[in-house]
């Protein structure tokens, strides 16, 4: 079989196409930084940028799990509920154990919630959106009613340190993200599990027919997503320094938007790990920019809604053509 080498023109077209298929987050981040530089130059000082990077860490951690779910054609909207519950477990003093044990309990709790989500999605075959929304409802309902008995208090010292300490001017929270991001990204890229995830995302029917352990992969994705939500909660609780009842409320939606902006699309099997991470920074930055321009929560919600709609529509249009 002879191999046809691409001509110069074809190669140029290829480059153009790969530029176009680059995650929107890369272009978007550059554009946003430029806009911020022109409207509110104070926002792009290194000091503030580092703060925004730190602020983006909980979202960036949650995004790793969410992108895994989206890649296997599922969604996890229970992240907010998990974060709320973890924050309550850590800060209310309802369970009295040394801090490290408490952290392990939280991780196990996250794994249980993820497994429960996966059970309903994989075995009962219920819609992941509805299952995870119901789970968030259950968790937040229980936590809020419990907190009438025992209000949340201070965060564990270890987490406060992680959330607030810096080395020089560099905050240490982003290193928590790196410690999770690098191994998971490497694992997804080079392991069989990662290939399976790609296969399911590209064509679920084909994946099922070729004997890929579909149920196990989706289950693992959901358990990982919930456990990562727990880590995101650790950083978030550390930041705030105390428990709160609206901690992590906007993370489920923001993480979904970041995944979409990061170039992971529903059912194309495409998408790396780095795009969503950049998108997490971009979103956090854009929320700060919106706030500095005097547009608060409403603009944020409208922007997110529009992003989901446009991204989903353009993906559907592409698939049809």
């Amino acid at each position: 079989m002879s191999v046809a080498y691409p001509s110069a023109r074809q190669r140029l077209q290829g480059t153009g196409r790969s530029l176009l298929s680059m995650p929107f987050a890369y272009v978007g981040t550059v554009a946003l930084l430029a806009v911020a530089y022109m409207t509110t130059p104070a926002l792009v000082s290194p000091m503030l940028l580092l703060l925004i990077v730190r602020q983006a860490v909980p979202l960036a951690i949650a995004v790793i799990g969410q992108s895994l779910c989206v890649r296997v054609l599922s969604l996890d909207l229970s992240i907010g509920g998990v974060i709320l519950a973890v924050s309550y477990i850590l800060t209310s003093g309802i369970i009295r154990y040394p801090e490290p044990v408490l952290l392990i309990i939280c991780i196990l709790f996250g794994a249980c919630i993820g497994a429960l989500n996966a059970f309903f999605i994989v075995r009962i075959k219920a819609s992941s959106v509805i299952v995870t929304l119901a789970m968030a409802l259950i968790l937040s309902g229980i936590v809020i009613s419990l907190s009438q008995l025992r209000a949340p208090g201070d965060a564990p010292a270890l987490l406060r340190y992680i959330g607030q300490a810096r080395w020089g001017i560099v905050p240490i929270a982003p290193f928590v993200w790196l410690a999770l991001f690098i191994p998971i990204g490497w694992f997804l890229r080079f392991s069989v599990f990662g290939r399976y995830v790609d296969a399911i995302g590209a064509n679920p029917q084909a994946a099922l027919l070729s004997g890929i352990p579909y149920a196990r992969i989706v289950t693992t994705a959901h358990i990982l997503s919930a456990v990562l939500a727990v880590f995101s909660a650790f950083v978030l609780v550390g930041f705030v320094g105390a428990g709160s009842l609206d901690i992590g409320r906007d993370l489920p939606l923001s993480s979904l938007v970041a995944v979409i902006l990061g170039g992971v699309t529903f059912g194309s099997g495409r998408g790396g790990a780095f795009g969503p991470a950049v998108a997490a920074f971009m979103l956090t930055f854009s929320f700060n920019l919106l706030t500095s321009l005097g547009l608060g929560e409403p603009a944020k919600l409208m922007l997110q809604g529009a992003i989901i709609a446009v991204a989903a529509a353009s993906y559907s249009a592409q698939r049809r053509s």
Binding site: V72, L73, S74, F120, I130, V131, A134, A136, L139, G141
Partner: peptide
């Protein structure tokens, strides 16, 4: 009551027939 609604929702969608896994 919110939590109970969530539980009821999980119970109710468990009674539904569906063949797809995912969204």
């Amino acid at each position: 009551r919110t939590a109970a609604t969530g539980a009821l929702l999980l119970f109710a969608i468990s009674m539904q027939r569906r063949n797809v896994i995912g969204v």
